[in-house]
Each structure stands twice: as C-alpha cells, then as structure tokens.
Design a protein around this nucleic acid. Structure first.
Ligand SMILES: [Mn+2]
Ligand SMILES: [Mn+2]
Ligand SMILES: [Zn+2]
Ligand SMILES: [Zn+2]
Lengths: 147, 147
DNA sequence: AAATGATTTGCAATATTGTTGCAATATTTT
DNA sequence: AAAATATTGCAACAATATTGCAAATCATTT
C-alpha cells in the first residue's frame, strides 16, 4: 500500500494510479511479466499505450529490468534496491520453465564472468537458462501452461 | 554456389530458390540477422510469409539458431556443422555491440556452467554480452549504426 | 484549499509485425 | 515426362507498436 509510493518517489517519478497499479502487479506476480500479461490482466483497465510508456519509464528509472527472450517478447521483472536510473545492478541468472513458462529471477545466482576475444569490451551480460521448474516435475504439477 | 545445396540436402529439405537465397544472405552477413533484415534486404524479393516459414524451417532443422534479444526481435545466425534437427549444439556466447548493433557469434567462447538452486533443472543456456566491438572503438569507426 | 504549471493519460489514427487458408507454382519421386 | 509432394505468394486478417494531441491528473505554489 505504501511501498509503491516510496519506490516511485525515490525514483523521482509522479505517483499516479496507473503506475501504482502496474507496480502492484509486479509485486503480486510469481515471475516476470510481459507487456501482454499486464495489458490483458483481468482486474486492470489501463490503456495499451500507457502500459508501454510505464514499462519504458520503469526501465529507464531502475525500477524494473528486461529479460531477453526468443519469442518476440520482452519480459520485465522488479529490480532490487541497488538498481539506479541508467545503471542496472542485477546481473543475475534468469530461468524460464519450458512447461509452465514462468520466468524466475534467480537473484542469488550471479552471472559468471567470461573471457572474451580481443577487441570485445563488455558492458553488461545476460544469462537465460531454459529448463523445467520444480512445480512442473512434482507429483502435483500445474494443470496448465501459464503463458 | 554449391554449399547451400549441400546444407539443404543434408537436412532433408527441398532445395528451393528462396531457401538458397536466404542461406546466401547468412553466409554473406557479418553478424546475426533479424527477420526484418532479410525481408528488407535490397537485392531480394521474397514474400514476408516465406521468410517467416523459411526461418522457422531452418531453426527446426538445425541450420540456424536463435539469439534472444530485448527488443521484440529474434536474431538468427548460422549453426555449426554439429547442430542437428531438434538438438542444437551451439552454446556459445553472443556479443551485441551497442554502437553498431552488430551481433557476433563468439563460436569459441562456450557458455559457462552455473549452479542452480534446488529444483531448477537446466536444458539449455544462453549468454548475451552487450558492449562495444573493436570497430566501434578504432580510429576509423563505422560511419553509421547498422540496424 | 484553490490556483497554477507540469506531467501523464487515453483516444484516434497509423504503422509495423505476425498468422492462416488456399490456389498456383516449383520440386522431388516414380 | 507424369504423378505425387512440398513450397510459395497472395489476400485477408490479427496482433502488436508508435505518434500527436486534447483532456485529465498530479505536484507545487500561493
Ligand atoms: Mn531478474
Ligand atoms: Mn551463435
Ligand atoms: Zn514450470
Ligand atoms: Zn560495433
């Protein structure tokens, strides 16, 4: 209830209904969200355009980070406190379950360093692991794929 | 001239003009290609739909592989010989230059292993490094961004 | 609390990107 | 060369993304 307010304030952004609502969705979500997940969420009625602009603003201000995918989609997930505008600090591994399609931030698994050939100067590294999550291999798996 | 023919034959695919032409593009390219790069290539006149279907077929048959991105796009690059239908074998690092936007397969840089928390069973791992390439830091940089 | 100015939002219009069915064409097999 | 099979292009459609602008909301000042 108060948390979104603080995050937006800290980022120097106006505190609007849309932004609070979308932040809420991220807090409630068990994994990363795509634009479509937000737009099509049942209990929400925010214009597509506003969703686009909000996500962009949040990325630019270090509130959420992007996760690359291989399906013409971008996933977004909440940043940790350490992220700042322009300079993200979340080089953790992302895990995409190929069964339920849920994407987890493995906040405790850092992306390992890797030695690049001469001439390539790294700025940021992403690591995406595809596989199966525990829910999808347990005796009582999720009945349906998520996305 | 003969190479595309062999690749298509080996994959058990019909050898068609479109497929040979698109394969040519990949051989000529200095980096990975997006759908749009192919569709809009000057010296080519293949229907959008055919490009979609060709890329899909090539991926399914281990001729090209996908590279995840963070801009509602999928990049594609030629596979090495070791790739087979259904089972790709190219867990190498990909480098995206943030200046010229060229994407390189670093074929010799393997994606490092990483220990996951309990319950996450990995199948495939991707690693994308963003940074600047040598061309874009040399005294005579590329005049214009590519994409 | 009301007024002011700055920012954000929704709408409409448009552009771009992706999907599907089907007939015409090209390729492979006989 | 003919038959069988697979691919292509077109058309229609669906989904996704971008832009300008007026109305509404939010922050700041009085
Ligand atoms: Mn994350
Ligand atoms: Mn590659
Ligand atoms: Zn799962
Ligand atoms: Zn470059």
């Amino acid at each position: 209830m108060l948390q979104q307010f603080e995050i937006l304030k800290k980022a120097g952004l106006s505190v609007t209904e849309s932004r609070k609502t979308i932040l809420d969705l991220f807090f409630a979500a068990q994994g990363a969200l795509a634009h479509a997940d937000i737009e099509k969420h049942s209990s929400i009625n925010i214009d597509r355009v506003t969703v686009y602009r909000t996500l962009q603003t949040f990325v630019e201000n270090g509130i959420i980070h992007q996760i690359p995918t291989t399906d013409n989609t971008i996933l977004y997930a909440l940043c940790k406190d350490s992220c700042e505008a322009g300079h993200h600090h979340d080089e953790h591994v992302h895990f995409i379950c190929v069964v339920c399609n849920k994407t987890n931030c493995l906040d405790d698994v850092m992306v390992p360093m890797v030695k690049l050939p001469n001439g390539f100067l790294p700025i940021q590294t992403a690591m995406i692991v595809k596989g199966t999550c525990i829910d999808c291999r347990s005796p009582h798996p999720q009945p349906f794929p998520q996305r």
